[in-house]
């Protein structure tokens, strides 16, 4: 796992949180991921952001000194480490705007003990939400370019 920048500013909560990124083709994802990581780290959570090479590059380039992101790791390496029992998380926020994103989140719901929040976004967010077959708390917004609807949903669940 790569670690960038300073530690979160809040008193450490001991909570381990995974932010699982999907394909970065929908613009709001990177912005919301940085905001979410910032909010979680500010309250003292240890955050790992997992994603494809492109998704992580987009996030890291926007946060060159690592003020918002915590640790980062490749999404398949992350799935492998949870499956092998090497690590687990208390909370997971999974991003999905496609069936593949939902499928990755469903995998995490099975292999991990983390409480799962599924952020469903993009033009087909509501239809995609109907396909979810596993336990999770769904945060659904038809957000593509405007991150504010997703931000509002995140603000409601993060104290």
């Amino acid at each position: 796992m790569e670690r960038s920048g300073e530690e979160g500013r809040g008193t450490r909560s001991g909570r381990k949180v995974l932010i699982l990124l999907g394909c970065p083709e929908v613009p709001v994802q990177t912005s919301i991921a940085l905001y979410l990581s910032f909010r979680l780290r500010r309250r003292g959570d240890d955050v790992v952001v997992a994603g494809t090479g492109a998704a992580l590059q987009l996030a890291k380039l926007a946060d060159p000194e690592g003020h918002y992101l915590g640790g980062t790791m490749n999404i398949d390496r992350c799935i492998a480490s949870i499956s092998e029992g090497e690590r687990d998380f208390d909370l997971c926020f999974a991003f999905a705007h496609s069936d593949a994103g939902v499928t990755y989140a469903g995998t995490v719901s099975y292999i991990s003990d983390a409480e799962l929040y599924l952020l469903l976004f993009g033009r087909g967010a509501e239809d995609l939400a109907e396909t979810v077959e596993f336990d999770c708390r769904k945060l659904v917004a038809k957000a593509v370019h405007n991150p504010v609807p997703l931000k509002k949903l995140i603000d409601e669940v993060i104290d």
Binding site: D76, I79, A80, I82, S83, E84, V102, T103, Y104, G106, T107, S109, Y110, I111, E133, F134
Partner: peptide, 16 residues
């Protein structure tokens, strides 16, 4: 197989 099942050094992604 369960999600995360290891085959050819790959961990399968999927919903049961």
């Amino acid at each position: 197989v369960p999600p995360g099942y290891r085959i050819f050094d790959t961990f399968l992604i999927g919903v049961p």
